Computed example of a mutant assay.
Amino acid sequence: MASVIRLFSEGFRIFFFAAGLFGAVLGLVWVGWLALDVRSVVDGMAAPYQWHAHEMVFGYGLAAVGGFFLTAVPSWTGTDAASLWFVILVFGLWALGRAAVWAAPVLPSGLVMTLDLLFVPVLASKILSQLSKRPKPQNMVFLSMLCALWVANLLVHLEWAGITGESATQGLRAGLLCLAGLIALLGGRVTPAFTRNAMKRAGVAEADWPVTPSVLNKATMVLAVGLPWVAIMAPPFWVGSWACLLGTVQLLRMLKWRGLWTVDQPILWSLHLGMAFLALGLILFGLASGGIGSESGAIHVLGLGAIGVMTVAVMSRAALGHTGRPLVAGRSFAFVYGLIALATVLRWLAQSHQSALIGSGLIWSLAMLVFALAVWPIVSQPRLNTP
């Protein structure tokens, strides 16, 4: 019982573990559908590829986002962390949404939509109450991103419920790009900052620390916050152009982040790798919108590479740091980072080759399972009283 209470005592504990476990199961379900060549779930419901994309973005992705914000926002604002009962409530709403979507063939579509749309408003209301204590613009923009995620999810459900003709693809694309925008903002903060801190501790001269021109950070904020809204409202070519511009800015930001210095520190190189996948994925997505390359390949460089690597990198670091453990990624976490990168490359090369698609899905599932097993003893045990 003590372990169960502890699991809900802080948002990152339950959400990070659930994200890993859910990601593993989700990958296996998708591999099963690929192997059986399933074309549809039931008449009138989503095609498997839409269902898979929805649960990756609004299931796995939102679990990682929820755990992060419940942990990070109190430290940004100096406010109290969410109570045990609020964590139970908000996690219950996330789980209820997943149960509703998975049981969609036997539930009214309106009920599925309602249940799946409850989580984000409740999470956002908590974040708003905390951010309003210290309303800094660079933090308040995250409320816009959460609103965009909710609208994107709504667009998916509206088509699934038969209310709109074609809005699911638009919603799925907007949801994915919203997560990419969040990574551009948050990863752009923590990656050079954590690298700088490590270099300082190692005695590296200040002239060699990571730097980012202010103009590029400002451009990133505008482009990242606007990206999901452009995806919701604009034609695909304009969405791709916006994404390509953000990817180019991200690539320029990374030039002086000293990524090569981190090669022997998985806790750091995983962040640089995720941000590199972000830049590459956004540029590939933009090119695909102009008829150059595969949009599906670009989407998976973003989904598996950028979002996959960055979420496990941030979740593992946050879990270690917020439980008083040394910020050192052990072999299990390093293995996870490498597996997700491998799954990304394989999926990008796969195109429509069935065996490669299945292989990529299996590697992803293995990575998520290893992550869940590695993070469990961290999130289920008490905080260490380290100096």
Rank of each mutant, 00 (worst) to 15 (best):
L280W: 07
P210S: 08
L339D: 02
P48V: 01
L255A: 14
L149I: 12
L339W: 07
W269P: 00
W150L: 11
I283G: 13
L339K: 06
C244V: 00
A47M: 15
V211T: 14
L185V: 08
D43S: 15
L182S: 01
A313R: 01
T323C: 10
F119P: 10
G290K: 05
L62H: 04
G338E: 04
Y49G: 13
V370N: 04
L115Q: 04
A184F: 12
L89A: 12
V222L: 13
H353W: 14
L369I: 08
A100Y: 07
G171P: 10
G32D: 12
Q381D: 14
W209R: 06
G247K: 09
K126Q: 12
F333K: 01
N217L: 14
V57I: 15
L149W: 03
R258T: 08
A124H: 03
F15K: 05
S241H: 14
L115P: 12
I363Y: 04
L115W: 10
G297N: 06
A329N: 06
A234F: 02
L280V: 07
L349C: 14
A372L: 13
A2W: 15
D208V: 01
L282W: 09
L185Y: 08
L366P: 08
R317E: 02
M368S: 10
V151K: 01
G11H: 03
L268A: 08
P210W: 11
F333W: 10
I358E: 01
L185Q: 05
Y60G: 05
H272R: 11
R201S: 06
S289A: 08
P326H: 05
Q381K: 15
A124Q: 02
D264E: 13
P377F: 00
T164E: 09
I88S: 11
L7M: 09
G23H: 13
L177M: 03
I88L: 13
P236N: 11
M310L: 13
L7R: 09
I232G: 07
H300C: 07
G181P: 09
L70A: 00
G291D: 03
R39H: 12
R253L: 00
A46T: 08
K133N: 06
I88F: 00
S270I: 04
T212E: 02
L320D: 00
L62G: 01
G97V: 09
A35P: 14
V263C: 13
L70P: 07
L304Y: 11
V263Q: 11
F194Y: 10
C147A: 15
L223I: 03
V4S: 13
F12E: 06
F277S: 05
V211K: 14
H52E: 09
Q351I: 14
F86Q: 03
N385M: 13
P192V: 02
A319D: 05
H272Q: 04
G303N: 06
I292D: 00
S144Y: 14
V41P: 03
M140K: 03
L320P: 15
A298P: 07
L96H: 00
I307G: 03
V263H: 13
L107P: 13
M221Q: 15
L26A: 12
R383G: 01
L62W: 03
A152L: 00
T323S: 12
R201D: 06
T248P: 00
T212I: 02
L176T: 03
V249C: 06
A161C: 04
A243C: 07
V190T: 04
I14C: 10
F285P: 05
A47Q: 15
M1Y: 14
M1S: 11
S352W: 12
L342S: 10
F142R: 02
A81N: 03
L172K: 01
V375S: 01
P74H: 02
G303H: 09
G308K: 12
